[in-house]
Design a binder for these strands. Structure first.
Lengths: 357, 357
DNA sequence: GTCCACATTCGAATCGATTCGACCCCGCGA
DNA sequence: TCGCGGGGTCGAATCGATTCGAATGTGGAC
């Protein structure tokens, strides 16, 4: 009772107009005479009315101005990966036309996890899934059933859902071919995690790879080096690359003359591990990355890598969402990586490559 | 008409119960007999009802499960600053108990910018402002008027708004004192931006500093070196630090024996600039940072810096918001930086310091 | 003087669910 | 046998705004 907050009806009454007119004054969706506008505005001020309640507005209008972005990782991790970062940047850009905010959501992790905000309980106008894994299927169905536009980046959400993809396999194959043409025969792979919660470890063929990106890039590398040993790291970080690199150069496997890392950060770590092991890059061992981001502190190295248009991916997703919200169909887009040769790859060392292989 | 989506009333009718009962089945806010639950669930399934509409639910219940996070920078920038990143990480943690999603918002930039999602138009249960500047005042009032809990990190939102702060001034003074005790007398400062949109440039005393963090740290440094020249960078990046460093070592000012950088990234850039200028760190010039983050690629340097509990700050903000939403009062918290001596500071070079000063 | 067009404004329906107090029925203790 | 406590349901009010077709009024054209 004390002070129920004023509603638009109160304002309308105070201003001596109908609620509909008052509403229009605030939304600007129809012409209003100057005098009316002033009267309503003043009434609002007098009553301490601060504008329409977003909740009510979104109920009636069916629009909340929010685009949900669903990750499968711990939310904190999102902020730590430069590629994601760039993508988010592009995404923010892409939805800017909508004037929508981005709601960060995490793929329901423990299912029963208390009561996390999920795709199904959040008032989103559209959703962007990033590398969606299986867990998400369920919420995805709900969202589709609701008629909420969905776009997937780097993942597969079934028919009818536009995908923003990358030619991971082909690109990675290209890097691998490059190594092969340099004479490398003994190659190891430093891979991204194979599923969420993964702890760095060697992969055996039985290991199921649940993350599309990891799988696709791995397949691309295996297209060229079919039996390269794979150490899958716990995440795309330099430190994890270091761990992977140490494992690779530990002697547990015959020392490779080249390492294919599935991300630039991993590559940076691998390079560091190589140096620790007393190996020169690229003379003793070549290293390739993936992503084409700027890795601080890698100088004087310039990674041989695959430059992916991360920002562009995000932007495309944003545009797709925008289009769908406006009723236009949105097509899937497939981006292409550009191979960039740096100074971390060189001809395979003769002694090792020629003799031993 | 085609297929109006089923509502909870439809489900209730189909199940032969009242809407209220059906609602309760979904929300679980009251006991329901097993038989009823089953009937309702089946009815829902039959009708393709996927659960309550979040919009309607939030209107009636007054809760949306969304916490707004307001930045003053371009959203993309948020994702690029490690400190922000860590803070977001902590924040995500801190609001996890609420099960709320984080809605990224940007401080209304151009006021009339088309129609961006803003604090006033988004259905948020609470808001966290990060380093809020003046522009925000307005939306802030609206939000306060609505009774939405607000917490501010590194900023001042007036009385009644809990603040998560940092002892910027004292901490920076500590670093400055350290330099002084090492014999430094001629010191330059590489500062953070003084307002949004700032382009790197020397500061004169007339320049108004709109960003609290920048001002506080500057005052702390000036407490010790009252007339140190200040170059304020365009952002907290290594590259901007490099630019600042080049300016500082350009000869435009007498060459300093020490540089106080307001962030670790700036410090890294300054170090690089020093090396470019043929100066050795720390023999010829000492450099201090601020933040205590891990700067990739800085090796073999270890910054002398002030370690701030960035993650902890975010977490505290999250907890404060949680408390307020549950009706408890939330107190302001002030965090303290820890001084950490690395190998980028050393005694002032005799020739320069003793003779010239 | 009449009629039309245009610019505004009004009314009433609607968006979809939650909430709160009333109510009913059943079992148990007195 | 009567009163009482509670689990389980139901009705009706409410949340606060938007929307859309209809109504009103005014000035200009004929």
């Amino acid at each position: 009772m004390s002070t129920r907050r004023a509603t638009i009806s109160d304002v309308a009454r105070e201003a001596g107009v109908s609620p509909s007119t008052a509403s229009v004054v605030f939304s600007g969706k129809a012409p209003v005479s100057e005098s009316t506008r002033v009267r309503v505005t003043q009434a609002a001020e007098a009553l301490g009315y601060t504008g329409p309640d977003p909740r009510a507005a979104s109920l009636r209008s069916g629009r909340s101005g929010i685009v949900g972005v669903v990750f499968e990782e711990h939310l904190g991790a999102v902020f730590l990966d430069p590629v994601q970062t760039l993508m988010m940047d592009g995404l923010a850009d892409g939805v800017a036309a909508l004037g929508a905010g981005l709601l960060l959501l995490r793929d329901a992790p423990h299912a029963d996890a208390h009561r996390a905000a999920t795709l199904t309980t959040a008032p989103v106008d559209a959703a962007v899934l990033i590398g969606c894994s299986g867990n998400l299927r369920e919420s995805l169905d709900v969202v589709k059933a609701r008629g909420i536009p969905v776009v997937v980046i780097e993942g597969d959400a079934g028919a009818g859902v536009p995908r923003i993809g990358l030619d991971n396999r082909e690109a990675q194959r290209q890097a691998a071919s490059h190594l092969r043409s340099l004479g490398h025969r003994r190659v190891a792979i430093a891979a991204l995690p194979v599923r969420s919660g993964w702890k760095g470890a060697w992969l055996d063929d039985a290991t199921e790879i649940r993350i599309d990106v990891t799988r696709d890039r791995l397949v691309g590398a295996r297209d060229v080096f079919s039996d390269a040993p794979v150490f899958a790291a716990a995440g795309s970080f330099i430190d994890e690359g270091l761990i992977a690199g140490r494992a690779i150069f530990s002697g547990a496997i015959p020392r490779p003359t080249a390492v294919i890392a599935q991300s630039d950060l991993l590559a940076a770590g691998v390079i560091r591990a190589a140096q620790e092991a007393g190996l020169r890059v690229p003379e003793d061992v070549s290293v390739t990355g993936f992503d084409g981001i700027v890795v601080d502190g890698l100088a004087p190295f310039e990674l041989t890598t695959l430059v992916q248009p991360a920002t562009e991916k995000g932007r495309a997703a944003g545009r797709a969402v925008t289009a769908m919200l406006e009723g236009d169909p949105a097509a899937s887009v497939n981006f292409t990586c550009e191979f960039r040769e740096g100074n971390t790859t060189a001809a395979a060392p003769d002694l090792l490559a020629a003799r031993v292989d």
